[in-house]
Nucleic acid binder design. Structure first.
Lengths: 173, 173
DNA sequence: TTCATATTTCTGAAATGAGAGAAATTAATA
DNA sequence: TATTAATTTCTCTCATTTCAGAAATATGAA
């Protein structure tokens, strides 16, 4: 797909943002491009539109699939793979947050627990207490994420748009 | 302050986690150390405990102050600065999320808006619609963050511990 | 103001990460 | 099965980031 200068600018901005989110610039750019495409496109198309190496695009697509931000599609009589981005921004945000949470807390509870047990063993109550608090935080984060996975995206949109009002409600519970 | 092997292990783990959160390992380690300290400690103390260069500790403390995770303290008859970490883990999480959100969406709304206006100008409706959705998402994120800043930490702990139940409640609204 | 000490900024080296191109692998068609 | 196109993995280079040590700056006491 041909892209206009405006689209190019958007994609570049999106790429910059990605780097701040711990996503490689080219990966975010590939995502930005797919987000602006009307229909599924193939890898070669992405390469020429963004002037990136084919290998780089391949790696980026794999990464985006891990985030579940793009899906593969196949066309009859064409052996190439086509890709589309999740077009609903709320679903997009949700999946990004979910994958980031996973990457960022992966194994953390276990690691802290290991230290916590050692601290208790040694009778170091102060350290144990601090570690316990940290563990409670981490495991709660995991629980919230687990629970969130069971609800539809529309709920997040609703919750986010309520914004502050929601917190006001909780305060009254 | 002298630290035990268990504390060392915890600090190292915490440092590793930091890198996944986009925080330099030594910065996260300094924070981990302060979190385990009973009282305020000075920079030199941090250096010897963690075997880091003085300059590195200085930079790390500055970074942690930006996150509002550590506070300065001064002791009578001592010209050195002493540092303490926020000890409440919920307040800690809150401040980390707030600063990350700030860094990660800083200027994003404006950047997308700029592209959006151009797309409208060019009469590219499809692109404009997609950009508009993206902008709605980003500005909602900012609004939620703004609203969150006005509520006490205890509320977040409450909300997080309610976890899934809370989402169930929203579904019924 | 001068001296001593605490702290920050600058600079360069080492480690890490991103991305291009080549090589290898996979898959479809004849 | 052989051939060719599509995709992925490997490797090397270049850019970025982290961090130590040096130099500069700031701060408090005499």
């Amino acid at each position: 797909m041909q892209i206009s200068d405006t689209q190019k600018r958007f994609i570049r901005r999106w790429g910059e943002m990605g780097t701040r989110w711990g996503i490689a610039r080219s990966t975010a750019m590939v995502h930005g491009y797919l987000y602006l495409c009307r229909e599924a496109v193939n890898a070669e198309d992405i390469c020429s539109a963004l002037e990136l190496a084919r290998s780089n695009v391949s790696t980026s697509l794999k990464e985006l699939e891990q985030f579940r931000l793009v899906e593969r599609e196949s066309k009859a009589g064409d052996r190439r793979t086509f890709y589309v981005a999740v077009s609903d921004v709320w679903e997009m945000a949700r999946r990004i947050l979910e994958e980031r949470r996973r990457r960022e807390t992966e194994g953390a509870v276990a690691a802290v627990n290991e230290c916590l047990l050692a601290a208790k063993e040694e009778g170091d109550t102060f350290t144990a207490t601090r570690m316990e608090a940290m563990q409670e935080l981490l495991s709660t984060a995991e629980n919230v994420a687990d629970a969130a996975r069971r609800y539809p995206t529309s709920l997040f949109r609703k919750a986010a748009l309520m914004g502050g009002k929601l917190l006001g409600l909780i305060a009254k519970l």
